[in-house]
């Protein structure tokens, strides 16, 4: 498509405005516990999120090219995730992954350049989802309140991710360590989701930050 504005010199790019801007009241809320808040809720923003997908023989090519450009191979096993976060690659469907990292480069363009020649589809979803990080001793209780998967420490371990419904809306849930989870929801649901999470967390006490 013709882009007549590649020379947009002189205009400073605007900062991204999170779907939750103004909604996070930093501090401790809910029940007070001598051990401190049961869960800490932080927004992860701004993130780059790019979906990559291939079909048939394109898949092997894409996995190689991803490895070359990201230094990380998308995980083969369904519902698993890899990477330290720079980037993190999550399986989201057959031959489909989400590449996530804190925004620092034009990840969409990086991946388009690297993967499109091999036939992969590359789609920027960085603005389409909001992400919360939940961590602390009560984090699995909150997952149990919102979603029906097995959140037992023995069952849902670091490096596993899953898409399900949480508090009645679609969510992608990534286990980072035993008591830390990154949750992705559609941007439009972010406020509703945050409200549900904080309601659920009130009995354990929660820290917003």
């Amino acid at each position: 498509m013709p882009d007549s504005s590649t020379e947009a010199a002189g205009v400073a790019p605007l900062g991204r405005q999170s779907a939750l801007s103004g909604m996070i009241r930093p501090g401790d809320h809910g029940a007070a516990d001598y051990r401190g808040p049961g869960v800490t809720i932080t927004e992860r923003h701004p993130l780059s999120m790019v979906q990559i997908e291939a079909r048939g023989p394109e898949v092997a090519v894409m996995l190689e090219a991803s490895n070359a450009v990201l230094g990380l191979r998308p995980p083969q096993a369904p519902n698993t995730s890899v990477g330290d976060g720079h980037p993190r690659i999550l399986w989201t469907g057959p031959n489909r992954w989400l590449v996530v990292e804190p925004e620092s480069r034009d990840l969409d363009t990086v991946l388009q350049d690297a993967l499109i020649p091999g036939g992969a589809a590359v789609v920027d979803l960085g603005h389409g989802r909001a992400s919360l990080r939940l961590s602390g001793r009560s984090v699995r209780q909150i997952l149990m309140k919102g979603a029906g998967l097995d959140w037992h420490v023995r069952a849902f371990t670091p490096g596993m991710c899953a898409q399900t419904t949480m508090f009645h809306l679609p969510a992608l849930i990534d286990c980072r360590d035993e008591s830390t989870f990154d949750i992705y929801v559609a941007r439009g649901f972010a406020v509703s989701f945050l409200e549900s999470v904080t309601q659920a967390a009130a009995e354990y006490g929660y820290r917003l930050g």
Binding site: M1, P2, S4, S5, E7, A8, V11, P13, L14
Partner: peptide, 24 residues
């Protein structure tokens, strides 16, 4: 818009263009 000709000739009905607004 920044640097986009939006005249009827340059951007006719059912035309689609990429551009920047407020640097975005």
């Amino acid at each position: 818009v920044e640097g986009l000709d939006v005249s009827n000739e340059a951007l006719p009905f059912m035309g689609v263009r990429e551009t920047r607004i407020a640097g975005v």
